[in-house]
Nucleic acid binder design. Sequence first.
DNA 1: ACTCCTTGTTTATGGTGTAAACAAATTTAT
DNA 2: ATAAATTTGTTTACACCATAAACAAGGAGT
Lengths: 326, 326
Amino acid sequence: MTAQEDPDRTVELLWREPWDATSRQGLSIGAIVRAAVEIADAEGIEALSMRRVGERLGFTGMSLYRHVRGKTQLVDLMCDAVLGETVTGTVTGAGTVTVTGAGAETESPAGRSRPGDPGDPGGSGGSAGPGGWREALEAWARRYRALCHRHPWLAGVHGTRYVPGPNSVAGFEHALATVAGTGLSPAEMVAVVGLVGRFVEGEALREAEVARIERRTEVSEQDWWGARESLFAELSRYPTLTAVWEAGGYDEPEDPFEFGLRRVLDGIEVLVRQRDERRDEIASCVVCGATVDRSGTGRPRAYCSRGCQQRAYRRRRSGPQGGIRQ
Amino acid sequence: MTAQEDPDRTVELLWREPWDATSRQGLSIGAIVRAAVEIADAEGIEALSMRRVGERLGFTGMSLYRHVRGKTQLVDLMCDAVLGETVTGTVTGAGTVTVTGAGAETESPAGRSRPGDPGDPGGSGGSAGPGGWREALEAWARRYRALCHRHPWLAGVHGTRYVPGPNSVAGFEHALATVAGTGLSPAEMVAVVGLVGRFVEGEALREAEVARIERRTEVSEQDWWGARESLFAELSRYPTLTAVWEAGGYDEPEDPFEFGLRRVLDGIEVLVRQRDERRDEIASCVVCGATVDRSGTGRPRAYCSRGCQQRAYRRRRSGPQGGIRQ
DNA sequence: ACTCCTTGTTTATGGTGTAAACAAATTTAT
DNA sequence: ATAAATTTGTTTACACCATAAACAAGGAGT
């Protein structure tokens, strides 16, 4: 979903509006989002319609439009609501989803999770010392996957212009912290987190689809493929495929998530090791590339001079080149 | 899409039916699929409807149902049609898509590509000697990505029960051949190809979505994020994110595809090297794990005894454990 | 000439998101 | 207290969508 219209209103809703403020006749954003999540969890995102949500709450479908701009915005809110789940908490039951959306400035008592909190989608702890980044990043990936399992529609809904809410950003912050101090450049850190995040989403998407179809058609993946004899008859003309098949390549398949995650993390580790080698070498200015004095103590300098520091600042002010995404 | 109903009919259509057989009043499967691809290419998959396809051909929407079971089957056919494109060929123009579906057994003159053909979606050449697997696999990934660029709906439509057609299988065969002879186990070969394939699809999905939204809303990704000042105001409380931002992590972002592909291939290379080390060591029986005699010459044995070979055979006969997917 | 089959059309059903007009109730201003 | 304004939910309407079912017309086989 894309929040195509009025993303600023979505930001407002996500970050500054109290979701539990019930209107005169009892409708509230929190209730709407919660009902929508319940429907999507139980029957899939394609079963989610404005009418369904409204009627579940005892209203008409159109009543929602007084609180929410439209369906795409509702989905945006659903995403962040769900991303705010405590990792250990129960999930899809009626009203279990924590959708408190109290103001960010006001330290509300029933406040939401903050970056670094054990309750954020990132979970506990940052990078646990040098070399600990891998365990932490892997754990983050697994928690994210578990979340996608609990809400099978989530992975299929994350768009490129998804407006990030507090819970989404908290998770991203945690993941970034995970690879901080590895010697990766800032851009590489962002890329690493994005890569792992999209990997998880991709795999979760498959897994969710398999589960959904198996439930709907009541025929397992294995049975379905086993019944495709008319297809297998055509496959004997492909030598490599046949060889792989006959060598038992499909008897005990690798788990796609486990296999993929290991490969991706291995690939990242290769990069980290590369950067690690150069960490102690001469640093270069981020702007002009000139060598930077290493005083040996304190925070290492990023710029060779005040001039370059200022140039970097001006460049930043002109706006980002790509979106901030999880 | 899932081909939920009557997949055997889809197999029939993909592998054995001639698509160019025009009926009395001029409708044919080939024409239908071609028109559908044109619409989806030009206006996105969400603009594709049975009515649109029918009317583009001068018929009603219902007329299609005499040739195609329903929309999901049509999408399945579209996939394989598009997967059959010559890599170098032109693309989205009217009628350029090669959707010849002549029989597989009969060597039709305007026949489709075969595994290993330079014209298959896999492209030319298998693994180019030892160590060449990486270049070949990378090239395959890039071709697949290019295909997804030409048909932005493709990546978002590949499901787990997608019925593979001849072009799809040819591409898969090629990719498998790419990693044959690396010392990977058959199951690992399948997993590697699946990982890379899904990575490409995932990235292509994002790229397609960005392009689609940018075209529809006429505001670039950069401009859109630049306009989210009300959001940025909230972000200063996240220390790592702020640090990354201030260090210029978003000034020159890594290209997600290039970065990710390198990581994934690096990760695979780690695995390949692991297997390579053990290649010359003592092999173990695939079934019972016992050591296998290495005669030193000829094809290395996979089983320790005739008994284990037979057991493996019976296990294979009972059907596959997972689907064959690209 | 008669029947059967193929193919395209018409009609109908139940679903979707949401714009616009409307009605009631509460809040605010006077 | 009274009137105006605002909020909030409802009704109606529109333009789509996939597709089931009945129907009509033409060709092929006998």
